[in-house]
Nucleic acid binder design. Structure first.
Lengths: 357, 357
DNA sequence: CTGAAAGCGCTTACAG
DNA sequence: CTGAAAGCGCTTACAG
C-alpha cells in the first residue's frame, strides 16, 4: 500500500477538473479551457466568472493531460556531463541552476536535471528527451568545438540554447559568454598594475570557451608586448600546482598568474606559499570565477566575477523566447574584475596606472 | 513558428506508439502494454517478441500518457529553500543532487528541482506538487524542529523522505544523519590530540541537525571534563570571524576550533592569521564538510567527510522504496574525520593518544 | 460566442 | 491467454 489513495471512495475528494468548473459555471469544458488559457471565444464577463470559479475550486492544470494533448511538457532539460564523483565547478553549476530555475518557475516551467558521465551519455539523454517529448527545450553547457551534442540537436531541430557557443540555427541559439573579452579585462588589470611577465594555467582545453580565453590571452599579450606563458591544465588542483611550480622555476618567472578556476587558483596559492613566494609581494594571482571563499581567504583573491546566477536566468529566458517564437535578443553576458589583496604592482613598480579600467 | 513541427505531414514520422507495435506484432494494445510492463497475461514467447519489436521500432513510453492514466509522474521533487543569491552550501547541494539523480535515473525517474526563498514558499511548492500530481514523492532537506513542511506533508499523506530528521509516518520516513555521533567523532579526534579547551562556531540553529550537533558537543565536552565554548553563527563568513575573534580574546582561549561549514572554517582561519595566531601551532581547526579546497589550502584542513553524494543516493533509494511499498531499511549515513595539517596536539602536549579513534 | 465530439498514448477492468 | 472498450484531463477543430 504505497501511495495514499485513501480518498478513492468519495468522488468529491478526487482532483478538480475543468468539467467541475464547467458544471458550476453552467458552460462547457470548451468554454472553460478557452477562458483559462486566455483564448478568444468567450466574453470577458464569462471568462472572469470562470476564472473566479476555477480559483474558488482551487483548480490546477493537470500537466500530464496538457502534455499529452500536445501543449508541450512545460519542462526544460539540462544535462551536467561530469563524472559523478568529481564536479569541480560545483559553485558555477549551483548558481547557474539557481538562476535558470528562478526564471523557469516564473513561467511555470520545470527544470529537468540529469547527470551524465560523458558527452556520449549526454547526447543519448538529449535524444531520449526529444523522442519522448519530455522536455520542450534543452540547455547545453560547456560546448566544445564541433560539439557532437550541438550537431545532434541541430539536426533534431529541438529548441536549444548553447551557453558559451557560437552556433546558430533555426531552432538553436547561442549565448555569447565573451570569454575573450573577459580575458582582456583581466590582462588590462594586470598590465595596468605594471606586470610584464604573466603566466596562465588553463582549464580543460577541449571546451570552446577555454580556447577563446587562450586565444585572447595570446593575442593580447603579444599586442601589448608583454611576455605570456600558457600551461594547459584540466581544472584539477594537481595540474594547477605542477604548472605553478614549472612556471616559477623558469629562468624568467612570471610576476602574475591567471587560473581558470577558483580551485586552481587556491592550489596555485598554496604551491607558491610552499615555495616561499609571497602573494602579492612576489606574485599576483587572479582567479576566474568568484566565490565567498575567494573573498575570505588570506590574502583574499582578485577574481573575475561572472555572475553565474544571471547567466542561468539569461539562458532560461532565451530558451523560453525560442519556444514561444519570440526573437532572441543577443544580450551579452557581463563580468567584471573584483580587485582584492592578491594582485598588486610587481616589485620595483610604483603602481602607476593601477587605477586603469 | 517556434518548435519544429516539420514532420506533421507524413504519418510515419510521428511518434511510435504501442499501437504501432501491436500492429506489427499482430496483437492488441493490451497485450503490448502487458508485455512491456512485465505483467501476467501474455506468454513468455509473445512477450519476448513484442519487446523485440518495441526495441526495433525504438519505442519509448510517453510519460504524459502514463501519468494521466494514473501510473504516477515518475518524478521526485526537491526544493532548495535558500535565497536565490546566497546558497552557502553549494557543494553539499551539488553533491546531494548528483547522488539522488544517479539513483533516480537508474529507475527512470526524474528529479524536479525548485528553488524557494523560504520555508513558506517551499511548503507552497510542495502543496502544488501534490495537488497537480506532478511528483510521486518529495525529499525534504534541512528539517527544523517541528518543521511546518513535515507537518504538511504528513497530513497530505504524500510519500516523503526527510533527510536528517526523525519524524516517521505511514507515508513519511526519515534518514538519520547522525550529526550527534559525528560531532563525537570530531571531539574524539581533538581530545585525543590533547585539547582541553575547544570552541565551536555553529551554523543556523533552527536546523534540526545543527541542534543535534550542539547537544552532542555540550554533552561530550561535559562528560570528558573538557571546557567547551559554543558561539552561534548562521553559516556566514562574517559571523564566523567575529565569533573567532571573541573566542580568541577570551581569558581562557580555546586551543581547537570546530566550524559548521567549509566557508566558516576558512573565514576562521583567515581571522586567526590576522591575529597572528598560527594553525595548528596555536589553534587547531576542523571543518564540518570536506571539499577539494580544504585539501589544497595551506595549511590543509582537517574535515568531517560526510559524502553527500551517497547521502543523495540513499535518500532517492529510500523514497523509491517508499513509493513501491517496500520496507525502508534504516541505513545510517556514514562520515569520517579526515585528519590534515590544521589539527595537531596543543602546545606542550606530546601528542600521546593522537592515534585514538 | 457556444456545444458536442474526437483524440493525445496509455492502462485497466471486463468479457470472451 | 486475447479482444474490444472505456477513460485519465485536457485542447482543438468543427458545426451551430
Amino acid at each position: 500500500m504505497p501511495t495514499g489513495k485513501a480518498s478513492s471512495t468519495s468522488k468529491s475528494a478526487s482532483r478538480v477538473t475543468i468539467a467541475d468548473i464547467a458544471r458550476r459555471a453552467g458552460v462547457t469544458n470548451t468554454a472553460v479551457s478557452l477562458a483559462i488559457n486566455g483564448k478568444p471565444g468567450v466574453s470577458d464577463e464569462t471568462r472572469e466568472r470562470i476564472r473566479q470559479i476555477a480559483s474558488d475550486l482551487r483548480w490546477t492544470p493537470n500537466h500530464a493531460a496538457r502534455a499529452l494533448r500536445g501543449r508541450g511538457a512545460r519542462a526544460v532539460g539540462l544535462v551536467l556531463a561530469r563524472p559523478e564523483e568529481a564536479i569541480e565547478q560545483e559553485a558555477f553549476f549551483a548558481r547557474f541552476i539557481t538562476g535558470a530555475q528562478a526564471t523557469l518557475s516564473k513561467h511555470h516551467f520545470s527544470l529537468q536535471l540529469q547527470m551524465a558521465a560523458d558527452l556520449t551519455a549526454e547526447a543519448a539523454i538529449h535524444a531520449e528527451w526529444v523522442a519522448t517529448g519530455s522536455v520542450d527545450g534543452i540547455i547545453v553547457l560547456d560546448p566544445r568545438a564541433h560539439d557532437p551534442r550541438v550537431t545532434q540537436l541541430l539536426s533534431l531541430g529541438h529548441p536549444t540554447i548553447v551557453v558559451g557557443g557560437d552556433d546558430e540555427g533555426p531552432s538553436l541559439a547561442s549565448i555569447r559568454t565573451d570569454d575573450g573579452r573577459f580575458m582582456r579585462t583581466i590582462l588590462d588589470h594586470l598590465i595596468g598594475l605594471g606586470h610584464r611577465r604573466i603566466g596562465y594555467v588553463t582549464g580543460e582545453q577541449s571546451f570552446f570557451h577555454i580556447r577563446s580565453r587562450i586565444d585572447a590571452f595570446n593575442e593580447t599579450t603579444i599586442d601589448a608586448g608583454v611576455s605570456g606563458a600558457v600551461l594547459s591544465g584540466d581544472f584539477s588542483a594537481k595540474r594547477a600546482q605542477s604548472a605553478t611550480k614549472r612556471l616559477m622555476e623558469s629562468p624568467n618567472r612570471p610576476t602574475a598568474m591567471i587560473y581558470d578556476s577558483e580551485l586552481m587558483a587556491i592550489a596555485g596559492l598554496a604551491r607558491l606559499s610552499t615555495m616561499k613566494l609571497s602573494v602579492p609581494g612576489d606574485v599576483s594571482i587572479v582567479s576566474w570565477e568568484d566565490s565567498q571563499i575567494c573573498q575570505v581567504l588570506h590574502p583574499s583573491l582578485t577574481t573575475l566575477d561572472r555572475d553565474a546566477v544571471s547567466l542561468g536566468r539569461l539562458a532560461a529566458a532565451d530558451l523560453l523566447r525560442l519556444l514561444s517564437g519570440d526573437p532572441i535578443k543577443p544580450l551579452e553576458h557581463r563580468a567584471a574584475v573584483i580587485a582584492r589583496e592578491s594582485t598588486a604592482p610587481p616589485d620595483g613598480v610604483d603602481g602607476t596606472g593601477a587605477a586603469r579600467r
